[in-house]
Design a protein around this nucleic acid. Structure first.
Lengths: 330, 330
DNA sequence: AAGCTTCATGGAACCGTTTCCATGAATGTG
DNA sequence: CACATTCATGGAAACGGTTCCATGAAGCTT
């Protein structure tokens, strides 16, 4: 592979001059500029990133650590983040912790070794030695959707309280009293916040305060289905179920089908935090809080780049939108 | 941040010795080993990746360029690839071309600059200067699911012909004659292969040869919906529709609902290449070819690492499995 | 025309590793 | 006991860029 030395030789200039032309940092004569550029094109010169990173002690790479890339919320988010990063001259190194704290640590180590310029993190909730190091290391950091106490970094996330409030309003309007809630792990802030908002709002919305109607899973279909089964096992017969994120609602629907047969839908309404492609097709259609992953990703990257450039950044809760797909009376 | 020089100083050994201990390449005395490791731990030493990459002229990074990360096929694939790569000591740099040839070129340049050790590529189909360079550059390369002619690299992908054959069999068993086919771009090999296999198999399976029943989109819901509309606009009234990938089937269902109302399903059966979470919930449930993204991702990475290590690698078509969800008579 | 400033350029230092080479201690052998 | 061999170690070169510093040519000023 051609090096900048080859380019300089072919252009008949000193190595330093070639570098100045190619990185555009300093003034160069029109003559040497054109000769260097020509030589670079002829040799298909592509600068050696590691060498450049070593010298400049920055990589123009951002780390993005998500909890579950197969969750559409995160794949949308990652997609938008990547777009925005590209626009701002950064590359995104995407890692998937798979809702597993050990993998978070592994990837934080890898990121540190790669010397990323900043990190977008959607944490699992728990503490860990690597997270402590993260604080010590002063790496520009933005949290996505989930907080972890002790880390004071700006967070870009969903307005969980607002989203839950819109669900509560909907449940009340539809006259549901016996509502089951299937949540996420209480260790994850999103799980805790949504559950707390739901608990706090039940009474004023005429919803049963019986905690036997509440259970939590792992924010994945498998764990959510088990939680739904436990609720039914306790003899509860809800008229509506609220799933606290997309994969959870999927698990809930699977469990209900398995338990009550294909006709379950006639008797039980579903409402979800996170909107999925197929909710419009369910019969009756499933209403949902739409969680704007793309905006969170975009703003998160923009905020992180601000941090890197020494500007101060404020946390932001992105508002949700409720999609009421119930027919007739609203 | 601590450097290996700091570690060596603290351990009271020469820089070279510290390096030998930490990279474990060469013999070192038990004494210096323990002192270096202790010093490294105390200083929270993490090796500078760029410096190491520069010197060793390898990065232990694999590039993975997918066409659309929001397509569950690719997010499953990416997930599995990442797992396998981690197991083999590599990190994956994931990029999303968003079904856009220009972005493919952008990312190939970024990958080249990052000096990745190998590339997993799911191409858009078209040719481009960057792809030519890719060939010249001799970068270890594995294609995922899609070929591009002129690039002779092992390909790990779905058995498209086999998958389509199982769909044709199903259509015949269910007695469908007027079947619509909504495909992907003919420029993408997956799109072309699936269409060709379908076309070739129609007659022997008793399916109408009328090409007005065939249209193609962009492998995204939007384009697929438009294609479905065009078929209906031509006055066709199929009893079954075959969507050529996951997002396509989503678009097809949307178009049918919009056009024929919520009751469309009573009259039209859907069958899909790629199985999606919600197909089991549709009524009637949607049958589908399951496309084993995880296996493709895992084998692709393993194959790429073999290539990097100079071993020869053969292409592989991963067999599909048909999920017949139709009730009653099969 | 002399002196001063501007500015492109060549040359060299430097970033943090790995690895080669030479050295010298320790061990083994005849 | 002399000599060969093994082996851990110190020191230095090298990877491919960027950037600092010194130099000298060219342009301005008075």
């Amino acid at each position: 592979m051609a090096t900048i030395k080859d380019v300089a030789a072919r252009a008949g200039v000193a190595l330093g001059t070639a570098s100045r032309v190619l990185s555009g940092s300093s003034q160069t004569s029109a003559d040497s500029r054109s000769r260097v550029l020509a030589a670079a094109a002829e040799l298909n010169y592509i600068a050696n990133g590691p060498a450049r990173s070593l010298r400049r002690s920055r990589t123009d790479v951002l780390g993005l650590l998500v909890s579950d890339i197969r969750n559409p919320f995160f794949s949308d988010l990652a997609h938008a983040a990547e777009q925005e990063a590209g626009r701002l001259g950064y590359t995104v190194l995407l890692a998937n912790a798979n809702e597993d704290q050990a993998k978070v640590d592994d990837y934080l180590r890898i990121f540190a070794s790669q010397r990323i310029d900043g990190l977008l993190l959607s944490p699992q909730g728990g503490h860990s030695p690597q997270l402590e190091l993260l604080r010590a290391t002063r790496l520009p950091l933005v949290l996505l959707n989930r907080t972890v106490d002790g880390l004071d970094a700006p967070i870009f996330g969903t307005d969980n309280a607002g989203g839950v409030a819109s669900v509560l309003d909907w449940l009340q309007r539809r006259g549901h009293r016996d509502v089951a809630f299937v949540g996420g792990p209480p260790t994850i802030s999103t799980g805790a916040e949504r559950l707390a908002a739901y608990r706090a709002g039940r009474e004023s919305h005429g919803i049963s305060m019986d905690d036997a109607l509440i259970d939590t899973g792992d924010f994945l279909p498998g764990g959510a289905a088990k939680a739904m089964h436990r609720i039914l096992d306790r003899g509860m017969r809800p008229t509506a179920v609220f799933g606290a994120n997309g994969p959870t609602t999927l698990g809930v629907v699977r469990a209900l089908r398995q338990r009550l047969g294909a006709d379950w839908a006639a008797n039980i309404a579903i409402v979800s935090f996170d909107d999925l492609d197929w909710f419009e097709f369910a019969s009756p259609a499933i209403s949902a809080v739409r969680n704007d992953a793309a905006t969170i990703g975009r703003l998160g990257v923009a905020g992180l780049v601000d941090l890197i450039n020494g500007r101060s950044v404020d946390s932001l809760r992105v508002p949700t939108e409720f999609f009421d797909r119930s027919a007739g009376i609203s």
